[in-house]
Amino acid sequence: MDIGDLRRDYTQRGLDWDDLDPDPFAQFSLWFQQACDADLLEPNALVLSTVAPGGMPYQRTVLLKYFDHNGFVFFTNYGSRKAQHMAENAQVSLLFPWYSLERQLAIAGTASKISAAESLRYFSSRPRGSQLGAWVSQQSNIISSRQLLEMQFEKMKNKFLNQEIPLPDFWGGYRVKPISFEFWQGRPSRLHDRFLYSQGEDGWTRVRLSP
């Protein structure tokens, strides 16, 4: 299938040097709030890229659950493929694809596990069904059928009936500490605006990149 003619010109807005906050976390917060205000589907969805021990990169979508100047936090099963990759190579990248705003934001950094206490605080805030799901899913393992998964879910519902659901010891959060941010705004004729923040000894530096 030839889809070479499938294209659109990006004309919503530009991004100038003076538009940017010197603090990339503050600039992220601004763009994230604008994504929320635009009522995007899952504005906190990001593409997490990891590298397998053999060098093959893998991507998947995860949900950002909170962020501050210490980094960006998401949650997963510690036995999952992504967790196994991060145990071998903590260097990851995050991509926020805010297509309808003609924007994307790429973050490179290092991932590390958060504490069990911090994971418990978030786990306790999850809907009960999501808490049960964490217990049921042996993430990334092969399963024989959907029916088996649903049977396990019912088993866990009965096991924890009328009681609080504890935090699984195989589930928790990771914090990505950034070393760079790239803010990308689509522009007409593919002359996009790109600004790269990099962390140095004296703080964050900022440069404009050619599209």
Rank of each mutant, 00 (worst) to 15 (best):
S115W: 14
S119V: 01
E102T: 04
A106T: 13
I107A: 07
A108M: 13
S125V: 01
Q84P: 08
Y122I: 09
V92H: 06
S115R: 07
R126A: 04
L95H: 15
E118K: 05
Y99S: 01
E102K: 00
T110E: 02
K113F: 03
E88A: 07
P97K: 06
A116P: 12
N89H: 10
L94P: 11
G109N: 04
T110L: 01
S115V: 09
F123K: 03
S119Y: 05
P97W: 02
N89Q: 07
A111C: 13
K113W: 06
M86L: 08
L94S: 12
R103A: 00
A87L: 11
Q104G: 07
A117P: 03
R121M: 08
A90V: 01
R128I: 14
S124D: 15
A87R: 13
A106S: 13
F123R: 05
S100F: 07
L120H: 02
A108T: 14
I114T: 14
Q91S: 08
R128P: 13
K113A: 10
Y99P: 01
E88K: 09
A108E: 15
R103I: 04
I114W: 12
Y99M: 03
P97T: 09
A83N: 07
I114E: 15
Q104E: 10
S115A: 10
W98G: 10
E88H: 11
A116S: 12
A90H: 13
A117I: 15
E118G: 06
A117L: 11
A111R: 04
R128D: 12
A106I: 12
Y99G: 00
H85N: 13
L105H: 08
A90G: 13
R121K: 07
Q91L: 03
L120Q: 10
V92S: 01
Q84L: 06
H85G: 09
S125C: 00
S124G: 08
S112D: 15
